[in-house]
Design a protein around this nucleic acid. Structure first.
Ligand SMILES: Nc1nc2c(ncn2[C@H]2C[C@H](O)[C@@H](COP(=O)(O)OP(=O)(O)OP(=O)(O)O)O2)c(=O)[nH]1
Ligand SMILES: [Mg+2]
Ligand SMILES: [Mg+2]
Ligand SMILES: [Zn+2]
Length: 582
DNA sequence: GCCGTTTTCGGCCCGACTGTTTTCAGTCG
């Protein structure tokens, strides 16, 4: 019996319960398509921007993949914290069996047998039985399987969980460089969720084309390999010290497009694309697109595959089966924002608060990066540990910022602030001080545990303040470390739309806040976004790389992102200027 | 359990690798 949950549940918690149900159904040997429906439903809920707790049955059923039954379960889970279907299944299988099923290489059939024949209910039971050699006696098991289970038990802690995009990218680049040493002429690229720019990755996926078979040997001998999970003719998998798993796939040059498409995913996108091939009487796999006589139709490039299926080429960031296939068929895919489109960066700190660079140093670095304008936005006084600024220091700092700006040709430095939003939603600095600045970001940094109504009202009050132009990192989440606040983002988005306030995509790789799905909802409801580095040191100006990927996953085009505009147009689009015109 | 400018019933993506098989199930991508 699990601990009682606070209700209503957030989307991630609802999705976890749906996955548990899927796993229990797998243990039971239930219909695989029904199980897929639950897993697919979990995916939809986890990535929905709006809280499912706030939607009725019709609202939920509007999502393809959620029907009458799942809508009912989702509502029941969101509102009560649990559901009858799950409770019934737990009468057949203890919840601790699900931990056993999460072990690498241990699936539902094995777990069901361990439970039925050896009465193994938990990881501890399994460890004991495997050490005593009782597991190998089971049907289909042997000494090697038993050994694999013991390894998986050991590695469970170190290799569980996901990784941040920036860290996954770094390891992927090292792996690609390693492989290129062995096969300089081969094409070696990162694929999977890293290529799609997902905020976290479960592993690293690499595709190699035009290399000798022996490249898989180089892969499994990468320094830092802890264990080889598999090593075949065209595919190998390794566990790296540091907790990463990596998969390599090797294909022929004429298969490159199909393999890129397959290995980039996502799984849901692949299934939808393969369905579309089936509708035309064809077959799509990682080797190509084939007609009923197995004759190849396309395969060497991704463009050929999508085109043969009647689709425009779809950027990897959009491949999540969230409407991109229909948009590609109708030729209405947006032209996504690109890194080179950014002209300004509106969130950075200096030594005046908790930044590590002087005003002059960070401005000069931003300029060298090719930007045309920045805003200096130090913290305010309630964040005492950051040496936050009071009104006097803010105005003196603003004078220095403007003086610096006047000395620069073709570059503008805006005098701004990252003003703390106090727990009651008021601003940490006086109104006249905020009004005297060029730009104001308002952000929440404290009292993050407020309940849904409080934190939502707090952000809306900040949005209604006439000097606030941008809300910084609106949910305050820290990826893999801290949950978002309980803020109802759809209400914040509506308030931002009503007041002409922009929302930030904070590019710090542990924030990415707004997230892809939140930013997409914001855009759909008419809110403009800014992509900001929130740099506290010079290299961090490059964080916008991650923010741009998030924006692309949100289907944003250049026009949706204010800091793609020249400085004059940017300033006109800010709330403080818009308000003057009305 | 979901879904339908073919369908409201009958489909539902497709393949690599491993260990245990005497021809393939299980797990994973
Ligand atoms: N057609 C098909 N492709 C799959 C399936 N599972 C995985 N793939 C493809 C699409 C995935 O993006 C790609 C890599 O698999 P991963 O399990 O590593 O997933 P991905 O990288 O998307 O997410 P991750 O962050 O690793 O959890 O392989 C599947 O069941 N069917
Ligand atoms: Mg992956
Ligand atoms: Mg993978
Ligand atoms: Zn902040």
């Amino acid at each position: 019996m699990s601990a009682p949950s606070p209700v209503p549940l957030d989307n991630r918690a609802v999705a976890r319960v749906l996955i548990e149900i899927a796993m229990l159904l797998e243990l039971k040997g239930d219909n695989p398509f029904k199980i897929r429906a639950y897993r697919n439903g979990a995916d939809i809920v986890a990535n929905a921007a709006e809280a499912v707790a706030g939607l009725d049955e019709a609202g939920l059923r509007a999502w393809s993949g959620i029907g009458k039954d799942l809508a009912g379960r989702i509502r029941e889970i969101a509102l009560t914290g649990d559901c009858a279907v799950r409770q019934d299944l737990l009468k057949e299988f203890p919840a601790t069996l699900l931990d056993v099923m999460r072990l690498q290489g241990v699936g539902p059939k094995t777990v069901a047998m361990l439970y039925r024949d050896l009465h193994i209910k938990s990881l501890e039971d399994l460890s004991e039985a495997a050490k005593a050699g009782r597991v190998r006696a089971l049907k289909g098991m042997g000494a090697k399987k038993e050994e694999l289970i013991l390894r998986a038990l050991e590695e469970r802690q170190r290799h569980a969980g996901r990784h941040r995009l920036d860290q996954a990218t770094e390891v992927a680049e090292a792996l690609v460089a390693h492989l290129k040493q062995y096969a300089p002429a081969a094409d070696v690229v990162t694929v999977g969720s890293v290529r799609r720019g997902a905020e976290t990755s479960g592993d690293i996926d690499i595709l190699a084309t035009g290399a000798e078979r022996s490249l898989t040997d180089a892969f499994v001998s990468f320094p830092g390999v802890e264990r080889i999970l598999g090593h075949g003719e065209t595919k190998a998998s390794i566990l790296l010290r540091g907790g990463f798993q990596a998969d390599l796939r090797l294909v022929l040059p004429e298969e490159r497009g199909a393999a890129l498409q397959y290995f980039t995913g996502s799984k849901a996108h692949n299934i939808a694309l393969r369905d579309r091939a089936l509708e035309r009487g064809w077959k799509l796999n990682e080797y190509g697109l084939f007609d009923p006589q197995d004759q190849p139709i396309a395969g060497s490039t991704e463009e050929d595959i999508y085109q043969a299926l009647g689709l425009a080429w779809i950027p990897p960031e959009m491949r999540e089966n969230r409407g991109e296939i229909a948009a590609a068929a109708d030729r209405v895919l947006p032209a996504l924002v690109e890194p080179g489109d950014l002209r300004g960066d509106l969130h950075m700190h200096t030594t005046e608060s908790d930044g590590r660079e002087s005003l002059e140093a960070i401005v000069s670095a931003a300029r060298e990066r090719g930007l045309e304008y920045v805003a200096i936005t130090d913290h305010t006084k309630s964040l005492a540990m950051t040496n936050g600024l009071d009104e006097d220091r803010t105005l003196a700092h603003a004078a220095r910022i403007r003086a610096l700006s006047r000395t620069l040709k073709g570059f503008t430095v805006l005098a701004g602030i990252e003003c703390d939003i106090l727990p009651d939603g008021s601003m940490d600095l006086a109104d006249d001080c905020l009004a005297a600045l060029d730009i104001v970001i308002a952000s929440v940094h404290s009292a993050l545990q407020q309940d849904e109504a409080e934190i939502t009202a707090r952000l809306i009050r900040a949005i209604e303040h006439p000097s606030v132009d941008i809300i910084g990192h609106p949910t305050s989440r820290m990826l893999l470390r801290r949950e978002a606040s309980k803020v109802r983002i759809e209400k914040v988005i509506d308030a931002a739309a009503a007041n002409g306030v922009a929302l930030e995509i904070n590019s710090q790789p542990y924030r990415l806040d707004l997230s892809d799905s939140h930013a997409r909802l914001a855009r759909d409801r008419g809110v403009k976004l800014v992509i900001s580095s929130d740099a506290h040191e010079i290299p961090a100006l490059g964080f916008t790389r991650w923010g741009v990927l998030t924006a692309r996953r949100a289907w944003l085009s250049k026009d949706d992102v204010l800091n793609t505009r020249p400085v004059a147009a940017f300033r006109k689009a800010l709330r403080r200027q818009r308000a003057k015109r009305i």
